[in-house]
Design a protein around this nucleic acid. Sequence first.
DNA 1: AACCATAAGATTGGATATCAATCAATAAGT
DNA 2: ACTTATTGATTGATATCCAATCTTATGGTT
Lengths: 279, 279
Amino acid sequence: MSSRSQTIADTLTRAIIDHRLVPGCKLGERELAEIFDVSRIVVRQALIRLADDGLAQIERNRGAFVARPSMQEALEIYDALTLVEQGVAAQLSDRLGPAGWAELRQHVERQRQAVAAGNDALADVLGQEFHIVFVRLSRNKVMQEIHAQLVRRTTLLRSLITADFDYCNLLDDHSRVVDLLEKGRLKQAMDLIDTHHRTVVRGYIMDREVFPELTPAEALAPYLDGKADGPTTAIPLRRPAKAPGDGGASAHVHVHLPKIDRAPTSRASTKKTNRGSSS
Amino acid sequence: MSSRSQTIADTLTRAIIDHRLVPGCKLGERELAEIFDVSRIVVRQALIRLADDGLAQIERNRGAFVARPSMQEALEIYDALTLVEQGVAAQLSDRLGPAGWAELRQHVERQRQAVAAGNDALADVLGQEFHIVFVRLSRNKVMQEIHAQLVRRTTLLRSLITADFDYCNLLDDHSRVVDLLEKGRLKQAMDLIDTHHRTVVRGYIMDREVFPELTPAEALAPYLDGKADGPTTAIPLRRPAKAPGDGGASAHVHVHLPKIDRAPTSRASTKKTNRGSSS
DNA sequence: AACCATAAGATTGGATATCAATCAATAAGT
DNA sequence: ACTTATTGATTGATATCCAATCTTATGGTT
């Protein structure tokens, strides 16, 4: 069993990529220490791990917050992700055996079935997983870890932005990438990977504000009771339908925001489907 | 000023990539706490950062050690490094302006002068730096950090292996890569990057044992006195000339070694020049 | 002498209490 | 209304203490 701070870091990571902890959310040491029933020191170590992973931001004497990547950083993350996946694609087109291609096709098929069944949540998860499986086939653990970190950061981004693209066009990209690669059309596959990510990031509209709907205690509760398995209640992507002044349980939640001259209703409208991540 | 644990992590990182702390070296909490004159907790936080970076390995209830990557991991690190630099090369061949090419050429020229002057140490440093500069021109901070971490890990590898290649063939690689890229011959440039790293890693012969020549206290002393600037006394790559039983100041240094059935003189002989890293 | 089991010592992982420095927010004064 | 001072809260860090675990030394057994 690994150290407790690692466990806590994993739980926080999970909560962040599940969009239960949103960017800007304060991660107070004392608060988390109470939630996890550990000392502040263990929490601090966990927060250091999160910060190293790019998911949290620690400001001296101010504390830790869920990271709020800038649009620039978002572009860089997707750029790096594209670079890595293109490189892996080039490797796989040379080295991957039939079993590997079969695994990829099987995965695509599972996602297709989920889409057909209207199970958007499962399709989302499978869509995420495809990229992980893809890189795992490179059999390079170092690369896998780098890639997984990038994927986590893109997932974080998704709770910071307003999805604004027609995601239907992206559904078949995975399948097409596999097809192209297996046929040896590496260049086209790499272009498709690039387009895939560009389409996603172009549709992003960074919101200046994110309204937390859960306190850390509420957000983390599902992960705490005994079994470490995640909750089935992932928070779907959505924007608050009403103005900030909505009362309710989250009225006392504090979000760390830089001083912005904020227009009263500056948020962009969500034009199209907001569900469904980039896959 | 950033936190003290970050400062200590930076210092330890520096000591490791300077080969003053060698793989397997025990990083005792109490010992480091005394050296840096901080509490054990700060040291622990620094060690967590190092472990996240792949430079240290923390074993539960056993403590932290400078990482001893396996040959497999070494191959993976170089594989990932190749992938990243090839990707960056592809980006630069499209996007880099004249100023960028000039910067690269200027850097190559500086290294050439250092070689001509017989300043192997400086040439080594510049050779390392070339890769950093190369990736910095991508203007992607996320990618830079990923790449810098990989470079640190290759530097760590170099204190674990016996260089066994004719490094003269590698001296012009940087220049040739710049030439090829500027001329738009991307494919050849990428192949050269691949060959460059393959040549390096193929020459590696993992030693089963590394004999520390410095205690942590001795290794870290130069970094401590006031100025944070590194020492000018980088430890050059070399193998002990004699059998393990050489007495001296380091007789009491403990190195973490897995239980190996070790042949008395199982080390490979260093055939050619041992100085000069992979650049 | 070799071998196994136990006991002692040392080290890590963690908890708690405490203190100084800094930030945020309030209260007071002009 | 605006600026300043005080107060409170939080973080960064230390010291001390304790339990769990690993390593080593010890001692008995064959």
